[in-house]
Design a protein around this nucleic acid. Structure first.
Length: 565
RNA sequence: UGUCCUGUGGUGUAAUUGGCAACACGUCUGACUCUGGAUCAGAAGAGUCCAAGUUCGAGCCUUGGCAGGACAACCA
């Protein structure tokens, strides 16, 4: 942002991680270097919670003139795929961050990790266990009861090396043998009770193919990768807090100089009226409750992008919510505020009618077409003006008219005068109904002297309505989105499935909407403000001759609040 | 009957490291306006989980409680 920019910067408050870093820099730890990493597993699409982590990791490095690596945590071939690698890279880039050539994969380190495991075996700190998963699990004890040692715990080093090599060579089946660290089966921390280091998986890996059939566990890979990459701050979410002693144990076995990476945990993002776990999002996709990972109702980055959210709005949002160790739920209203704030500054204004009601201006010539001047963006004078065609027959929004208006309604009703934005004052003279009493059209008269929207006699009107010419327009489809769930915390109910709270009206498709011709050549993802309604962008589903708009967010609407009282 | 983490307005974060609770969103007024938008001005809303203690003074320190969360995958 340039120095002379009048725009408000979101105030960056110092979070607890930055405080830790400041202290470390004072102590001269790691030479004052800051190097972070964003480490997704390529087994699904990124969501707004990941965006928080991305902004934290890349943002922290930027703040301290450090670097951030992109590292794929691909230690489990049975869950991962290159499709996800590509979508993750696209999303991180779209958010505005770059990792230059520092794109790493845990699988890059399979060789070094194997050597490290061998070293632990030689030092008597790891052993091969023949027992099956259930037996090992039973021996592990419970959080309140210590575990018992495996009968294979004290094999000789030679035997362990031999067995581990044979595991690697594919001589055993999945589940037959694992490599475990020899730490402490009585530790109060479950993760220190001889954790599994390697397991046998015979599914081909998306990068290394069938070169390997033994794969390191997360705990045995993550910290070591951090170490080898020179990461100084390994920022992860709260559930890894209890893994930290193990993270440090491995680093102790590996460490040679003074440098050491530090794991710091923060609270993951929870948003009201949505779910955030990959498992639940996957369920919504698989069971067709939504139309894919990039459904505009999804909290995925691809969904938000398609919905019309901008990278800036998501970055501002991430900054605003802060970083702490307190588990909470952020109000989606804050996310919505972030996108409105951004689009208000940037979006091209346009008039569009979603629920059209025809208005005939009886004293306006039939063949006449006038080009009215309209402002493209009142927040940005440089955006200039455009022409909007005005004709005898136009459409207005159906709920901008009421035959019997309540007290505070000051839009159109029989006998009242309103302004058509950028056009004329009109007065309603007749309400035309069908045989069932439904209003099918309105007859109005216009005041020719009010051209442009002001009357020379200084007469005031209380309302300004948006409108679209009935002949000079583009007919479009508009998709209205609402929250996916009606409950603030759909996943927070013990005995009720989160899907019970799904909002049946989260998607409404309107096919008979009219927008001024200006949008005719808009491209996918272009954003507009439909005046008085909200922000809408072009959905990628759009094909030539058939524009499809997504509603990104509604404008704040004082009338709808009054109406409900 | 364990270990670790966390408790500040409705929500999310702050509080110069002990000096009398601030900011944002939301809510409610009012002004202005050719968007009932934006903008501007203002208001309400917490006495910081509880209790005791140290201190002239505690959201920050001490002790003891209470509440919530994480941990028992050959997932990450």
């Amino acid at each position: 942002m340039s120095e002379n920019s009048p725009e408000k910067e979101v105030v960056v408050k110092k979070n607890f991680i930055h405080q830790i870093i400041d202290e470390e820099i004072n102590e001269g730890k790691n030479g004052g270097r800051v190097h972070t990493r964003f480490p997704p597993e390529p087994n699904g699409y990124l969501h707004i919670g990941h965006a928080k982590s991305i902004c934290l990791n890349f943002g922290t490095a930027q703040k301290y003139n450090g670097l951030t690596n992109l590292r794929f945590d691909d230690t489990n071939p049975s869950k991962e795929d290159t499709e996800y690698v590509e979508s993750i890279k696209e999303d991180v880039r779209w958010l505005g961050f770059t990792w230059d050539d520092r794109e790493y994969y845990a699988s890059d380190y399979f060789g070094k990790l194997f050597e490290f495991a061998l070293k632990l075996i030689r030092e008597g700190k790891a052993y091969v266990d023949n027992q099956d998963a259930e037996t090992i699990s039973n021996q592990k004890g419970t959080p309140t009861r210590p575990g018992i040692e495996s009968p294979f715990r004290n094999r000789t080093i030679e035997e362990n090396i031999d067995l581990f090599m044979r595991m690697k060579n594919g001589e055993f089946n999945e589940g037959e043998k694992v490599l475990r660290a020899k730490i402490d089966m009585a530790s109060p921390n479950m993760h220190m009770r001889d954790p599994i280091l390697y397991r046998i998986i015979k599914t081909p890996h998306h990068r290394t193919g069938d070169k390997w059939c033994v794969y390191p566990m997360y705990d045995f890979a993550h910290g070591q990768c951090d170490y080898w990459e020179g990461i100084t701050h390994s920022i992860c979410t709260l559930e890894f807090e209890v893994h930290r002693p193990l993270y440090d144990w491995f680093i102790d076995q590996l460490k040679e100089g003074d440098y050491r990476p530090r794991q710091i945990e923060f609270a993951r993002l929870n948003l009201s009226y949505t779910v955030m776990s990959k498992r639940k999002l996957l369920e919504l996709v698989k069971d067709h409750h939504v139309n894919g990972w990039d459904d505009p109702r999804m909290p995925t980055i691809s969904g938000l992008r398609r919905r019309g959210y901008t990278p800036e709005s998501i970055r501002n949002f991430s900054e605003r919510i802060g970083v702490t160790k307190v588990d909470g739920i952020i109000d989606v209203a804050l996310l919505e505020h972030s996108i409105r704030e951004d689009l208000n500054k940037k979006a091209q204004r346009v008039m569009g009618v979603l629920d059209p009601l025809k208005v005939v201006i009886t004293n306006y010539a039939e063949d006449r077409i006038e080009e009215m001047d309209a402002i493209n963006n009142p927040e940005n004078p440089d955006a200039g003006t455009r022409k909007v065609a005005f004709t005898r027959e136009i459409y207005i929004e159906r709920d901008d008219f009421m035959e019997y208006p309540p007290k505070k309604f000051y839009r159109l009703s029989p006998g009242t005068e309103v302004r058509l934005r950028y056009a004329y004052f009109i007065t309603c003279t007749d309400v035309v109904k069908d045989e069932n009493g439904n209003i099918i059209e309105l007859h109005c008269t216009y005041d020719p002297a009010s051209r442009g929207g002001n009357s020379p006699d200084g007469r005031k009107v209380k309302a300004t309505l948006h409108w679209v010419s009935a002949s000079e327009n583009v007919k479009v489809e508009v998709r209205l989105y609402d929250r996916l769930f009606n409950d603030e915390d759909p996943a927070g109910h013990k005995d009720i499935d989160f899907k019970e709270f799904m909002n049946p009206d989260s998607l409404k498709i309107l096919s008979g909407c009219y927008v001024e011709k200006f949008v005719e050549n808009a491209k996918a993802l272009d954003s507009f403000q439909f005046e008085r309604l909200g922000y809408f962008n072009i959905d990628p589903d759009t094909r030539t001759g058939r524009l499809v708009f997504n509603r990104t967010a509604q404008l704040r609407d004082t009338w709808s609040k009054l109406k409900d009282k």
